[in-house]
């Protein structure tokens, strides 16, 4: 029972991180119909930015996270302006190449600036607490709570504000959104900014549990792709549900099936799902 509860919590906290990353990815896909391979690199740079300002200036954890969110939002918007905007009418193949180009550049950039070594991020929540006789790491609880708060803010932003509704409108029907006078450029930039914010938040939350290194985004982004395919490309609720699902399945799979092949689970899941249903598990709904 002890093990079960612990694995459930691990699964929920990993799932939270996956969900946050997948949310940004799915929103960009909903608007632009581009699989943003560079999203994992945004995630990785986000972790490094937080780490650097925390260790250099001694800035507290949460403020470092806010600064990192802002920085990655800026990075995402810049890459949209420089790469995706000129490629908006190009073939899908070239857009994917563009995304791969950004990814390779950012990974090399991190290697030059921060070095290829693994680094540890400290967080104020290093202790452990025990609930019902089971011990949990504090950071994992923090990850779960913070993720829920971020998702709620995103939900209210998308449903209660004009700008948020514009994003949803454009994801639902592009031409219709143009017709009612929505500024497409603004919406696209905003979506990229949000996806950057989510990536930075996820990275800063996950880094104290895992480690910070230039390749940290690779596996996360691949799993995020699995998640958005399972949840329906472009669907926001789908990404959240599938993210938690994957986190929990992985966590239990690692304990009860095989620790070595833990990372295969996600990809095998996707292969099986796409084999049975080539268009993904859920049909696409924007929100």
């Amino acid at each position: 029972m002890d093990l079960f509860l612990q694995q459930l919590l691990n699964g929920l906290s990993n799932g939270s991180v996956y969900s946050l990353v997948a949310l940004g990815l799915t929103m960009v896909f909903g608007i632009l119909h581009v699989p943003n391979f560079a999203h994992g690199a945004f995630y990785m740079i986000g972790a490094y930015v937080s780490l650097t300002i925390m260790s250099l200036f001694g800035i507290p954890y949460w403020i470092a996270m806010l600064i990192s969110m802002f920085a990655i939002a800026l990075l995402a918007v810049i890459s949209e302006r420089l790469i995706y905007h000129p490629l908006r009418n190009a073939a899908g193949l070239h857009q994917m190449m563009g995304a791969i180009g950004i990814l390779l550049f950012l990974v090399a950039f991190a290697q030059v600036v921060w070095g290829p070594n693994y680094q540890q991020m400290s967080s104020p929540y290093n202790g452990a607490i025990s609930i019902f006789g089971t011990t949990f790491t504090q950071q994992r609880i923090i990850v779960i709570i913070a993720t829920v708060i971020i998702m709620l803010i995103l939900h209210f932003f998308l449903t209660k504000t004009m700008i948020g509704s514009a994003i949803i409108a454009m994801a639902q029907n592009r031409e219709g959104a143009y017709l009612v006078g929505i500024n497409a450029n603004m919406v696209v930039m905003l979506t990229f900014a949000i996806s950057g914010i989510l990536a930075a938040a996820a990275a800063t939350l996950a880094s104290p549990i895992n480690l910070v290194f230039p390749g940290m985004g690779d596996l996360v982004i691949m799993k995020a792709f699995v998640i958005i395919i399972i949840g329906g490309m472009g669907s926001i609720p789908g990404a959240i549900i599938a993210g938690y699902l994957l986190g929990i399945v992985e966590s239990f799979g690692a304990t009860y099936i095989s620790g070595d092949y833990k990372d295969v689970i996600a990809f095998a899941l996707l292969v099986i799902i796409l084999t049975v249903k080539p268009t993904g598990l859920f049909t696409r709904r924007a929100y």
Binding site: L87, G101, L104, F105, L106
Partner: peptide
């Protein structure tokens, strides 16, 4: 660090 150079070259070529 070759990708620091070839990444942008790839982007320029693609665009």
């Amino acid at each position: 660090y070759k990708m620091l150079i070839f990444g942008p070259i790839l982007l320029l070529i693609v665009i």
